[in-house]
């Protein structure tokens, strides 16, 4: 006796539908962002990326300042976070388990704190601190801008980069390390000249993960960037990023302004897509989040 729809087939189709929902949502996301940004692309066109004149009141939407701010804060954050993350990953992998496990858990918890809280900490602790330290050297500083933004980003990105690097390094065959030590390498030489070299792709993937997170981080940067839409020219300048502009402007925006924000979102999405598409083959499938 054969039923028209047995539970087994129904279950299989239900599960497949879940996967299709995921695909559909992703496609819809790209479509909606594109559709909403058409108006700005038609009216502002390339000046959206090449002009640094951002003045919604008289209809100029040049986001070069936000783009430059995004690039600068992200690069500075990675410059600080990547060496620390690599060193912390080495520490955790080399330490005895009764030290390594709690430290690894603590680093993971760093990633569990919501980004608003990092933003608050930046606004009320880091910015005043920077201001008072620099004023001691006779430098007038508002406390906001590139420096605190990249510092907070570095702190937020560090646990992610470090966790991936830890996994990547842990996958190294023990024989490789032992051979390196066997021919007389010091621990550091074995790590840097042999292990890091053999795990280059994975380590690069870890950095890309950090890059992706730093580019898209919104709230923490919004708190401390100062909201200056011009292209930053010095370390002490105020700045803004694409993500911070979106969150800051959206509530008051309408018409072309709103559409321009969607277009900025589209640009950010394109960058993130490029980063993800290059990262996935580098680190393969990771089992952890």
């Amino acid at each position: 006796m054969r039923r028209i729809l047995d539970t087994d087939t129904a279950f299989r189709w239900f599960c497949k539908a879940g996967a299709i929902v995921g695909l559909a949502v992703a496609i819809a996301l790209v479509a909606v962002i594109l559709k909403e940004s058409m108006l700005a692309l038609r009216t502002a066109g390339f000046s959206l990326v090449f002009s640094a004149e951002w003045n919604p009141a008289d209809g100029s939407f040049g986001a070069a300042g936000a783009l430059a701010g995004t690039a600068a804060t992200t690069l500075l954050a990675l410059l600080m976070a990547v060496p620390l993350a690599f060193a912390a990953a080495l520490f955790v992998n080399a330490a005895p388990p009764n030290v390594a496990v709690p430290v690894a858990h603590a680093l993971d918890l760093l990633a569990a704190i919501p980004s608003v809280i990092y933003g608050m900490w930046g606004l009320f602790v880091l910015c005043p601190l920077l201001q008072s330290v620099l004023s001691r050297f006779g430098i007038e500083y508002t406390g906001f801008g590139l420096v605190p933004s990249s510092l907070v980003l570095a702190l937020m990105v560090l646990p992610y980069v470090s966790a991936v690097m830890r996994d990547v390094l842990a996958q190294t065959p023990v024989a490789l390390v032992e051979s390196a030590m066997g021919v007389g390498c010091t621990r550091w030489e074995a790590t840097w000249d042999v292990v890091a070299r053999s795990r280059k792709a994975g380590l690069l993937g870890a950095i890309m993960i950090g890059l992706g997170r730093a580019l898209g981080e919104t709230m923490a940067v919004l708190f401390v960037c100062g909201g200056v839409s011009a292209i930053p020219t010095g370390l002490l300048d105020g700045c803004t990023t694409i993500a911070a502009t979106l969150a800051n402007d959206f509530a008051e925006a309408d018409g072309v302004h709103k559409s321009a924000l969607f277009a900025l979102g589209g640009i950010l999405l394109a960058f993130e897509f490029a980063i993800q598409a290059t990262t996935i083959p580098l680190i393969g499938r990771r089992s952890r989040k």
């Binding site: 996967a19 299709i20 995921g22 695909l23 949502v25 992703a26 819809a28 996301l29 909606v32 962002i33 559709k35 909403e36 993960i209 992706g212 580019l215 898209g216 981080e217 919104t218 993500a243 979106l246 969150a247 959206f250 924000l261 969607f262 979102g265 950010l268 999405l269 993130e272 897509f273 980063i275 993800q276 598409a277 990262t279 996935i280 499938r285």
Partner: peptide, 25 residues
């Protein structure tokens, strides 16, 4: 494979962008 790739890409989509999308939808 397509779904797996999409899921990996979605992991990296910043939350602001998702906010924009939800607003649009």
């Amino acid at each position: 494979r397509a779904a797996r790739f999409t899921v990996n890409v979605m992991m990296g989509v910043p939350s602001v962008i998702v906010g924009l999308f939800a607003y649009g939808v």
